[in-house]
Design a protein around this nucleic acid. Structure first.
Lengths: 210, 210
DNA sequence: TAAAAATTCCATCAATTGTTGGAAACATGT
DNA sequence: ACATGTTTCCAACAATTGATGGAATTTTTA
């Protein structure tokens, strides 16, 4: 049994998939309220009622976007978990940083969407339902900061959150931060990874020692 | 010569100041586009045209809010600089974290405003003009990571940015993150400070050693 | 190829947006 | 008491919003 959303994702040339893809980007850039259905339609190059034909209400489209992104992140985290298993702690952390950065720099609308869901209320009470709590627990276990998903210490959670948010911020805010560092995109990516590792590695390896 | 904005701030009971104060909070919560002038007026308890009488266009009011917040932050940073001078590096960092956290937790609309300016475009191209670049350089010098404002290394800047953003995120996203840590507001504040120090102190003291 | 189904667009809707003119209410000085 | 200036609200505006009905077009099916 294949859901309609998945069917649309299977064929990236379907109109439904094209709309979803534009919606991801534009909802990410402007947030829920500031994005108009006309903006998305124009971006796809279709009439607004075609958009409504495929996705119904704006809110439904937004929820589809969030679900889409949410699944993608989960997949990525699973991929990382596979990649790092068996490696030393330091190597695990570095692989995780590199992989997640490459993915997010390539899909900057993902951090955009997550952050605008965190920080901005919208007028119609549409809520972001990203299962952050689950992600955090998964990361903690993958990084062997905890044996059991249920038993992650509050300090470990807070540190993971801090690093995770730092990644999102650096990527989502590149247009803002890069001029401050006065550098190219490539070097920016490099500096971000370096900074994250610099922060992350001591934060987690120190914790391990006790 | 006292500007109109400063005159309004001098008397916090003036209508102009009340509007500015509500505008700070609501622009922070909803971002520029999603905030309607009617929402602000309702929050103050006045008719919408009274708001226009005092502040003119929405954009002007927003810019006044940004300038207000911007000045407040600069004052706070100066205060911190005075407080930490002469102390050891570790003490400096800890005082800075404590002071800035206390201030921001008490004025959560400040991180809200900054973050929504970073990450969310708005439809009318209204730009956030917070002099982040300057702040970063000031912090670098205050923390003695650089002798000269002009000569802050790109790595130092990136690390300061990382910590600064982490603070803003934790405070602005409290309603999102605190349930994940399943704790009280007071303990949340404590954990945030702890986490920041944990990240900050090694990040900056290690840098010092070479 | 013709009927049926799916897709697209045009025109329009009511609600909400930023913004303003002008009348009322209030305050101040004479 | 009166005139003058300031502040507030009511009513309205044009533009934009999310959303829909229905005609026109394209695609699929038989």
């Amino acid at each position: 049994m294949v859901s309609r959303l998945e069917k649309a994702k299977q064929n990236p040339h379907s109109m439904k998939a094209k709309i979803l893809s534009s919606a991801r980007r534009i909802f990410g850039q402007y947030g829920y309220d500031s994005t108009t259905t006309r903006m998305i339609a124009k971006d796809v190059g279709i009439d607004i009622s075609t958009l409504y034909y495929h996705w119904g209400e704006k809110q439904d489209l937004y929820e589809a976007v969030i679900m889409d992104v949410s699944e993608e992140i989960q997949d990525k985290l699973n991929e990382i978990e596979r990649k790092v298993s068996g490696q030393s702690l330091t190597t695990r952390l570095e692989i995780a940083i590199d992989t997640i950065c490459d993915y997010l720099f390539f899909h900057p609308e993902v951090p955009n969407l997550i952050l605008s869901g965190y920080f901005n209320k919208n007028r119609h009470g549409v809520t972001l339902d990203i299962k952050m709590s689950e992600y955090i627990a998964n990361i903690a276990v993958a990084m062997e900061l905890a044996q059991d998903k249920k038993k992650v210490s509050i300090q470990a959670k807070a540190r993971i959150l801090a690093v995770w948010n730092t990644v999102l911020n650096f990527i989502s805010g590149e247009s803002f931060f890069r001029p401050m560092l006065d550098t190219s995109h490539e070097r920016y990516v490099q500096i971000v990874k370096e900074t994250l590792k610099f922060i992350l590695v001591p934060a987690f390896t120190l914790d391990k020692k006790k």
